[in-house]
Write a protein that binds this DNA or RNA. Structure first.
Lengths: 247, 247
DNA sequence: GGCGCTTTCTAATCTAAATTAGATTAAGCA
DNA sequence: TGCTTAATCTAATTTAGATTAGAAAGCGCC
């Protein structure tokens, strides 16, 4: 498919980053808002335009979904004509894939940074709480990239999804290890299935961008609520309800 | 554009049902699996084909998402040529909208039925548990309709979404009233924001179809896990046996 | 004060998919 | 058995949107 991708295309700054999975976005590159120029990216006009297109794509993608995303709309948001996009990206899919990949990297980087700040002896449940909070803040605050990632895996062409899911494996493993550590230390209720619990929790967090409205519930309240529910829900210290109503 | 929608189109059986919101799907119509012919639908060949097309649409929609859904694929799954769909539905969007509407109705009907079976004096938290279980079972077992509904609101054309969200209002109110009752009775932790909690819980449940794999975690384990986490996560503590209704 | 590179534009082209037209087959029924 | 309506098909038509071609505009540099 990838015949020499157009002589005129400039060395795409993040072709490398898009493939490498060792180079997580450095902490200082994780910021709130729109254009985050990663470390090492030359700040030329072209690089900025490229970034602007990427930001626009993230915005549209998070709003319209994979198949509903139009290049024309992206171009419009970026303040450019549609064909200009091809100067930076070989195809619509390449652009979209980079957005999602970056979203994943950012969320993961944010969570890892939060975990790294915990004191050495933190309990497993404390770590889970920190991860929950960081992930939630990532999808709610960290620009549209994380949202785009979260809302669109699952509706993309198989090939692309496969690659993206593979790229995300490390993040899944991170979460799993948190849960396994908690279970090993007896901090998680024996009735909960670890895998189901992990995905339910992440699912709850990922749903937040769909409904959260800062005017209705302040961010901090959402965070508190999520922390309260998930961490207490997982923990072992409360008795289960009787069999009432649960058949 | 909606000039008389084609003389030849037969009286679409559920044109009425698709609009009425009083006529919730009757309990006996809520079944597991594919084609559920609602009460009062004549069982003619045409009605069956129409239903088959609807089922196919639900299946494709739940898998590919709104914009990724192709009439050709629906037709293929239904064992029919694409244009035949227009004999039953005026447009792609009309078909899709009916799928989602039915999905909403089914989930809601399922939850309401579960609540109706609870003993009169059930605690508010017991009701929430019942609703959680019923909703989860609906999205995991109740054919593709509920899944299609859950996964696609949020990516459809604005007009359509508006209508569907409006149609769903009653369901939202049902949940809210459950949460409000629990709070009024002091059964919910004062730290949790009611609105955020409600949507986090529903978000967690709605995420299940994205990842659940019956081979990996049995359905019953998912249900148990969800119940454990959500109900204990919300509760301030569990009412002791026998204290229900003594508020 | 023109030259070549970079960046972006306008104006096609190409393609997939919804929708329509009209023909064709199946089914009840006089 | 022929006639009318129902149900479905095949073969256009249309449209939206990605992609390509190739021209122009900006810009550093001699």
């Amino acid at each position: 498919m990838t015949s020499p991708p157009r002589a005129r295309r400039p060395a795409a700054v993040s072709d490398a980053a898009a493939v490498s999975d060792t180079a997580a976005v450095p902490d200082d590159a994780v910021t709130i808002g729109a254009g985050t120029i990663g470390a090492g990216v030359p700040d030329t006009k072209a690089a900025r335009t490229r970034e602007r297109v990427l930001d626009a794509a993230a915005e549209v993608l998070s709003r319209k979904g994979y198949a509903g995303t139009r290049l024309a709309e992206i171009a419009d948001v970026a303040g450019v004509q549609a064909p200009a996009i091809y100067y930076y990206y070989a195809s619509r899919d390449e652009l979209i894939e980079e957005v999602i990949r970056r979203g994943q990297e950012r969320a993961q980087g944010h969570v890892e940074a939060a975990l790294a700040q915990l004191p050495a002896g933190a309990s497993a449940m404390t770590k889970i709480c920190a991860a929950v909070e960081a992930h939630l803040r990532a999808v709610l605050q960290l620009s549209d990239y994380a949202t785009a990632a979260v809302r669109n895996i699952g509706q993309m062409p198989d090939e692309m999804r496969k690659r993206l899911v593979a790229a995300q494996a490390r993040y899944g493993i991170l979460w799993r290890s948190l849960f396994e550590e908690a279970r090993a230390r007896g901090e998680i209720d024996p009735d909960v299935d670890l895998h189901a619990a992990q995905l339910l929790v992440i699912g709850a967090l990922n749903s937040a961008p769909e409904w959260w409205n800062p005017k209705r519930v302040p961010l901090e309240d959402v965070v508190t609520t999520a922390l309260t529910i998930t961490c207490r829900g997982l923990a072992v210290s409360w008795p289960l309800p009787g069999t009432e109503g649960t058949t």
